[in-house]
Design a protein around this nucleic acid. Structure first.
Lengths: 206, 206
DNA sequence: TGGATAATAGTACGAGCGTTCGCAATTCTT
DNA sequence: AAGAATTGCGAACGCTCGTACTATTATCCA
């Protein structure tokens, strides 16, 4: 690996940190150069433009999210167990990010009215994650873990709400115990939709 | 009313519009002056600083929120009916704001790591609103509309999550039908906590 | 090890930001 | 209507931003 690619990777790593804290719009080349002990132009040369830098940061975040949340969960068997794993890992990730900030969430606010490639990319990523959740819920219905009349979209909507509330209460308001509330909310949520016909052993093992 | 106060009020009105769209941090005196057909310094003179302007905008938003959501709801009788009114008016406000943006929500992301008077003010306002919701839920428990073992904080947490998800899905992802999902989620939510001893007529009249 | 190539620094530019200040115009008060 | 007070404008300041261009230094490959 040539030195250039190595520095570039190091820059992106720091940039992701900064963007997590201040948002993608708050990510500035000057500050990034300071943190890297490099000149502005030195940093800049690795990316064609600030927008490209932001897009690369976004892709890096997406990659980490997949590694920590998505991929480990699809190793779980289909059904409620996988869904629980997805939510648990998601919560864990966001609660770690309470100290730094989740780019999916801050980005949703920053780019809800700002058209352009970053918005498109971000929408695609968040959409993909919601799509993965949706598929998992549908599998839960198919395999009988959740009731047949379950509205998958509705369930995903409410799961997302629990995470957003966690980010809001823990990171902005700094209310202790928010982490637990996300868990309690999720338990109550799937309890509502749980299929009473399913052998309790299947769900109790989790 | 002197002319100065009148223009000041007009500026604040436009400023609230801009801040709703681009966030409080995105509110710029130059853009504001353009929209007002005034000079930058002319606009600036009405406020000691940009931060003061932002604080005034925040207070104006809070005032509108109270007028449209809080005050009409406290006219409803205590209990589940008032809680439903609060949520319905809240949803209505946010769904109108889907086209412009809710400052409580965007502000929570913008100022979760940015100390200063704006963060303090915003936290106080959001805290006050959550406090109002909390009181209302507690009254629901006291008057028997909700189960005695209801965790009021938990219920408020989940209500907030439903609103945040609405803002996220409708404004950022632009998924149709999000409005309905907030309502369905709320119904399911209070159904979980509803006291089965309560005469159904009381809750059915809503 | 030397020459080609890649990586970084330095400098400068134009634009936009919040803010200051002095002056002109308008509005209010009597 | 006249004088006082308020209101608004215009220009300028210092700062930071992204970006472009040139020169120097470090790295890679034969």
């Amino acid at each position: 690996m040539r030195k250039g690619e190595l520095t570039r990777a190091a820059i992106l790593d720091v940039a992701l940190d900064l963007a997590s804290r201040d948002g993608l719009e708050g990510l500035t080349i000057g500050l990034l150069a300071d943190k890297m002990n490099m000149s502005k132009s030195g940093v800049f040369a690795h990316f064609g433009s600030r927008e490209d830098l932001q897009l690369e940061v976004l892709k890096l975040y997406h990659h980490r999210f997949e590694q920590e949340v998505f991929f480990p969960s699809v190793k779980e068997p289909r059904g409620i167990q996988r869904l629980k794993s997805m939510f648990a890992r998601w919560v864990k990730r966001v609660s770690v990010e309470v100290a730094s900030g989740c780019i999916y969430i801050s980005g949703a606010v920053e780019y809800d009215d700002r058209p352009g490639p970053i918005r498109e990319e971000l929408m695609a990523m968040v959409g993909a994650w919601q799509g993965a959740l949706l598929r998992c819920v549908k599998q839960c219905v198919e395999c009988g873990d959740l009731k047949a009349d379950t509205d998958p979209q509705q369930l995903v909507y409410e799961m997302y709400g629990l995470i957003l509330a966690l980010h809001h209460d823990a990171r902005f308001l700094r209310i202790p115990g928010s982490l637990g509330r996300a868990g309690v909310g999720f338990e109550r949520l799937i309890e509502t939709y749980r299929n009473p016909q399913t052998p309790s052993a299947v769900v109790a093992q989790q």
